[in-house]
Simulated scan of single mutants.
Amino acid sequence: MRPIPEVVARLDGAGAIVTGAASGMGRATAILLARAGASVAVTDVRLADAQAVVDEIAAEGLSAQGWALDVADHDVITRVTEEAAAAFGDVSIIVNNAGISASLPIDDATYDTEWDRHLVILLTAHQRLIRAALPHLRRAAHPRIVNIASTEGLGATAGFSAYSAAKAGVIGLTRSLAVELGKSGITVNCICPGPIDTGMTQAIPDEAKQVYAARRTALRRYGLPEEVAFMTVSLCAPAASFVTGAIIPVDGGLIARNA
Rank of each mutant, 00 (worst) to 15 (best):
G20H: 09
G20M: 08
G20D: 11
A21H: 13
A22C: 13
A22Q: 06
A22H: 12
S23Y: 03
S23D: 15
S23H: 14
G24L: 10
M25H: 02
M25N: 08
G26L: 06
G26Y: 11
A28R: 08
A28N: 03
A28S: 15
A28G: 08
T29V: 09
T29C: 11
A30K: 13
A30I: 10
A30C: 11
L32E: 11
L32P: 00
L32H: 04
L33C: 06
A34H: 10
A36D: 04
G37E: 12
A38S: 13
A38M: 08
S39R: 13
S39H: 11
S39G: 13
V40Q: 08
A41W: 07
A41F: 09
V42L: 11
T43M: 09
D44Q: 12
D44A: 15
V45K: 05
V45F: 11
V45Q: 03
R46S: 06
R46G: 00
R46K: 15
R46N: 13
L47D: 04
L47N: 01
L47V: 04
A48F: 03
D49C: 10
D49L: 13
D49G: 15
D49T: 12
A50Q: 10
A50T: 09
Q51P: 00
Q51C: 01
Q51H: 07
A52G: 05
V53A: 05
V53P: 06
V54E: 15
V54L: 07
D55V: 02
E56S: 04
E56C: 07
E56T: 09
I57L: 07
I57K: 03
A58C: 09
A59K: 05
A59H: 05
E60Y: 00
E60V: 00
G61R: 12
G61I: 08
L62E: 10
L62S: 09
L62R: 15
S63G: 05
S63D: 15
S63H: 13
Q65M: 14
Q65K: 14
G66K: 09
G66W: 12
G66V: 12
W67L: 01
W67T: 06
A68D: 10
A68E: 14
L69I: 12
L69S: 09
L69P: 11
A72C: 08
A72G: 15
D73A: 07
D73K: 08
D73Y: 02
V76T: 15
V76M: 13
I77N: 04
I77V: 14
I77K: 04
I77C: 07
T78L: 02
T78W: 00
R79H: 06
R79M: 04
R79V: 05
R79G: 00
V80L: 03
V80G: 04
V80N: 07
V80R: 07
T81S: 08
E82H: 05
E83V: 01
A84G: 08
A84F: 03
A84H: 02
A84Q: 02
A85H: 04
A85F: 00
A85V: 01
A86V: 02
A86M: 02
A86H: 10
A87V: 05
A87N: 04
A87S: 11
A87I: 05
F88N: 03
G89T: 06
D90I: 01
V91M: 03
V91Q: 01
V91H: 00
V91I: 15
S92P: 01
I93G: 07
I93H: 02
I93C: 05
I94G: 00
I94T: 03
I94P: 02
V95T: 14
V95F: 14
V95D: 14
